[in-house]
Write a protein that binds this DNA or RNA. Structure first.
Lengths: 203, 203
DNA sequence: GTTTGATTTGACCAAAAGGTCAAACTCACG
DNA sequence: CGTGAGTTTGACCTTTTGGTCAAATCAAAC
């Protein structure tokens, strides 16, 4: 039994700096494109010093992804079967859009991982993520059955919320290139609210 | 003046093999994550042989992107100001969805490039792409003004079509992990058609 | 069938990459 | 203020990477 020692102040500070730097680098280069030197430099540490805190590049990436997965699924977990159907779904969409605005690097970290085939989180996707989506999709299906929202394919509804919201974080440069000066997040919330109101309002 | 020689049969075959292999590798690893050895192996050539056809890794990537950009924008170019508004937009969405199904590697190549900040195509995005979107957005705005479709933000409408359709190519592994056996493209077309009909039908 | 240009390759380089290690340095606490 | 644990670093190692080059091989037009 190895005794888990309490982390020192320096440890806390440096591990946090490393994770923040790694988020920056991994999210903009992907796993293979990122280098330990780059992360170390961004964290203000030498490479050997960084490797004193994490045993390998893999380990840093794994720590980031693990810590993030929970946060990432929180908005969907909060979808309340007892709430008002349309408002619940709109709130879910709003929370996701908020996350795209506030945590774009985190969004791009996932985007990189998944576009590249999710080699490191595939198992979690088909277990935890699938289980959560299955659960919430059946809630939405029940709302449709009860005539409380229009009938839609619940899984594709959820995919649409993912794709629309994350698009603003993941494809930020493209969106900004097209919009010019206009802030993407100025009109996005209203657009999406309109979209889902029209899609889901019971006929 | 260097005379442009006609490519030999071998040149045609090998350049095509290289571009295909490079598409495979770049789209699943990003630019920095891809290696010349990997591309050469996938093309069935030795590394020096590959570098006989393209001067550098950069050059292969550039050739791929350039060749692809046109194809990628074709569906939007085809949006006809003289056509029926709702059907034109639905057709545009269908063409994009078709491309996500038929050309997922191409979609992921762009996704990687853009998620990683589009360092190599930023200029094209804010010139050619912006110009095209500006043009088509004003067509859509005119349709709204004429009351032929419901009022929506035309730019965000276009973004929504991009994100929804490309999601099925770019996040394929995630979609499949959640859906299990179900084919994503079975229900997607109907879902999206419903979505845009409800969003755009004139009030 | 020979010759000339096109193609292919093995051997090689320099730089960059992930990672190790022993020695040096710092810090907190008794 | 000394000491042991916690921290940092320069030097180093191996592998991988993008790229070069001269020599060898091949194809096809004459």
């Amino acid at each position: 039994m190895t005794e888990a020692r309490a982390p020192t102040r320096i440890q806390q500070k440096n591990r946090a700096a490393i994770l923040d730097a790694a988020l920056e680098v991994f999210s903009s280069q992907g796993f293979r494109g990122a280098t330990v030197d780059e992360i170390a430099a961004a964290a203000g540490l030498s490479k050997p010093n960084l490797l004193y805190y994490f045993p390998s590049k893999e380990a840093i990436h794994a720590a980031l992804l693990e810590q993030l997965l929970d946060t990432w699924l929180d908005p969907l977990r909060a979808l309340d079967p007892a709430g008002d159907p349309l408002e619940e779904i709109l709130d879910y969409m709003r929370r996701k859009l908020q996350m795209a605005r506030d945590l774009p690097r985190e969004s791009r970290l996932f985007a990189n991982e998944i576009v590249q085939g999710a080699p490191r989180i595939h198992a979690v996707l088909s277990s935890d993520l699938k289980a959560l989506v299955d659960e919430k999709a059946s809630v939405i299906a029940a709302w449709s059955d009860a005539g409380r929202i229009a009938r839609v394919h619940p899984y594709h509804l959820i995919f649409s919320i993912w794709s629309l919201t994350q698009h603003y974080a993941d494809f930020d440069v493209q969106v900004r290139a097209v919009l010019g000066d206009e802030d993407p997040f100025a009109a996005a919330p209203e657009f999406m609210e309109t979209l889902y109101r029209r899609l889901l309002s019971p006929a």
